[in-house]
């Protein structure tokens, strides 16, 4: 791994999930920072350093939707991937157009990695 590999921020209030996603991202050659609280993403300088954000939707305080809006306001074009373990949220999101990057937990790690790769490539294009 070099410092040039993309940096992915993972936001979730479940520590086990943070660890496993960090592991998955590292196994695919990415660098990862894990954040157990959404507000940590907005600490000075942090958002400028990341290439993609993966966030849980159901979190106390700032939820995933608000986090996505704030990220897009601060850094337009930065890929944000939403995830949730709640089926009802998944149904809600899938009904939306245009479709937005979303994964319902549990999800296939390979599919997540493919999406990250595609979104980062198009954000850099």
């Amino acid at each position: 791994m070099t410092d040039l590999s993309p940096l992915i921020a993972v936001v979730d209030d479940d520590q086990r999930l943070l660890e496993s996603l960090e592991n998955l991202l590292e196994s695919a050659g990415y660098r990862a920072i894990t954040l157990s609280r959404p507000e940590l993403l907005f600490e000075p300088g942090r958002l400028q350093s990341v290439d993609c954000v993966i966030t849980d939707i159901s979190m106390p305080g700032i939820d995933g939707f608000e986090l996505r809006d704030r990220v897009i306001a601060a850094r337009p074009g930065l890929p944000v991937i939403l995830m949730s373990g709640r089926h009802e949220i998944a149904e809600q999101i899938r009904a939306r157009t245009p479709p937005e990057p979303f994964f319902r937990k549990p999800f296939d790690g390979r599919a997540l990695l493919d999406t990250i790769e595609r979104l980062i490539a198009s954000s850099r294009a």
């Binding site: 479940d14 086990r16 999930l17 660890e19 496993s20 996603l21 592991n23 998955l24 590292e26 196994s27 995830m83 373990g85 709640r86 319902r104 937990k105 549990p106 999800f107 296939d108 790690g109 390979r110 997540l112 990695l113």
Partner: peptide, 15 residues
């Protein structure tokens, strides 16, 4: 509740 650890398991298995 069940989907949280399952998601972690799947990600770790893939890793």
């Amino acid at each position: 509740e069940v989907n949280q650890p399952l998601a972690a398991i799947l990600a770790s298995a893939n890793a």
